Amino acid sequence: MQDSFRLWDWPLRLFHWLLAGSVTAALLTGWLGGSLMPWHARLGSLVLGLLVFRLVWGLCGSTYARWGYILRSLAGLPRYLRGQWQAAGHNPLGVLSVLAMLGLLFAQVLSGLLATDDIATHGPLQPLVSAATSDWLSGLHRQGKWWLLALIGLHVTAIGFYALRGKPLWRAMLSGRARREHAQQADARGGRWPVALLALLLAVAVVWAVERLPAHFMPAPAAAAPALAW
């Protein structure tokens, strides 16, 4: 049996599949609209929580999930293009794809929080900005789905390309282990469940704050004028 090593920790794998499912569902509910728009908003809140979790996990997760390691991999792009890159985790082009995907998802979530459909659904932060700003962000949110679909298409294409070359990357995102090809590919360390629980609690707290706290800062509605006595 070929030697393997621990690559992706279970919180990162769970994040990955939950994000894939929630983004897919958010795209579908947003596309269909109508009575599904409340679900689109709920899924947006779920994506926000997942993104916050990933940000935190990049600081306290296991070796290959940390931002420091990911950014160092990006610095190896010239060596990768020369065919000299040997390391574990995402290759430099994969890092660019991950950063682009996470950045676009953050932009979509933020614009959705401030957007409105002018009918029945609006983001929890929408009352904090002017109508003109909200309309502008709503337009960006609608256009952003095309960029998101393009990135998802590139991601799936890349996975299929590597699978055809005998490197099924999706298996490592299921099992957490990958085939060892170089001596630099050592087992990931860290990423234990108590730290994952703290990251999860922080993500939940951020979502709760975004959805609940703005209402406390809204101006109270003007009191109705007293009825005149005749």
Results as ranks from 00 to 15, higher is better:
Leu125Pro: 14
Val47Thr: 01
Ser130Pro: 12
Gly139Ser: 10
Ile152Phe: 09
Gly76Ser: 07
Ser111Thr: 10
Ser45Gln: 13
Leu114Gly: 01
Ser73Asn: 13
Phe106Lys: 07
Met101Trp: 13
Leu104Glu: 03
Leu51Pro: 03
Pro124His: 00
Leu50Gly: 01
Val156Ser: 06
Leu99Ala: 09
Gln126Pro: 05
Trp57Lys: 00
Leu113Trp: 03
Leu105Thr: 01
Val56Pro: 09
Val95Arg: 00
Leu137Val: 02
Ala150Thr: 07
Trp146Arg: 06
Leu99Pro: 14
Gly89Leu: 05
Gly94Ala: 07
Gly58Glu: 04
Leu113Gln: 00
Arg82Leu: 08
Ser134Thr: 03
Trp146Tyr: 14
Phe161Leu: 13
Leu148His: 13
Gly76Arg: 11
Ala158Cys: 09
Leu114Lys: 04
Leu104Met: 04
Gly61His: 03
Ala100Leu: 11
Ala41Asn: 12
Gly44Gln: 04
Leu81Trp: 14
Ala41Lys: 14
Ser97Leu: 13
His141Glu: 08
Val56Lys: 04
Ala120Met: 12
Asp117Val: 13
His90Asn: 10
Met101Pro: 10
Tyr69Lys: 12
Leu114Ile: 06
Val52Glu: 04
Tyr64Ala: 08
Trp85Pro: 12
Phe106Arg: 05
Ile152Val: 15
Tyr69Ile: 01
Phe53Cys: 06
Leu50Gln: 08
Thr133Tyr: 03
Ala100Ser: 11
Val52Asp: 02
Leu77Gly: 02
Arg72Ala: 11
Leu74Glu: 00
Trp39Leu: 13
Gly144Met: 15
Met101Cys: 09
Gly160Trp: 03
Arg66Glu: 02
Arg42Tyr: 09
Ser73Pro: 07
Pro127Phe: 09
Leu43Pro: 03
Asp117Met: 12
Leu93Tyr: 02
Leu102Lys: 09
Asp117Asn: 15
Tyr64Trp: 05
Phe161Ser: 03
Phe53Arg: 13
Thr116Pro: 02
Gly103Cys: 10
Phe106Ile: 13
Phe161Thr: 05
His40Glu: 03
Arg142Gln: 15
Tyr64Lys: 09
Leu77Glu: 06
Val95Leu: 01
Cys60Val: 15
Trp146Ile: 08
Arg66Asp: 01
Gly139Ala: 10
Gly34Gln: 08
Leu51Asp: 04
Trp136Glu: 00
Leu149Gly: 15
Leu137His: 03
Asp135Ala: 14
Ala163Ser: 13
Met37Lys: 14
Pro124Arg: 00
Ala158Gln: 05
Asn91Lys: 08
His141Val: 10
Ala65Phe: 14
Arg82Cys: 04
Leu93Thr: 03
Ser45Asn: 14
Thr121Trp: 10
Ala41Gly: 10
Ala158Glu: 07
Gln86Asn: 09
Gly94Asn: 05
His90Met: 09
Gly44Tyr: 06
Ala158Phe: 05
Gly139Glu: 10
Leu36Ser: 11
Pro38Asn: 02
Leu104Val: 08
Gln86Met: 08
Gln84Pro: 10
Gly112Thr: 03
Val95Tyr: 00
Pro124Tyr: 00
Leu59Val: 07
Trp67Tyr: 11
Ile159Leu: 11
Gly76Thr: 04
Leu114Met: 10
Trp67Asp: 00
Leu102Met: 12
Ser138Cys: 08
Val56His: 04
Leu71Asp: 09
Asp135Ile: 03
Ser62Lys: 03
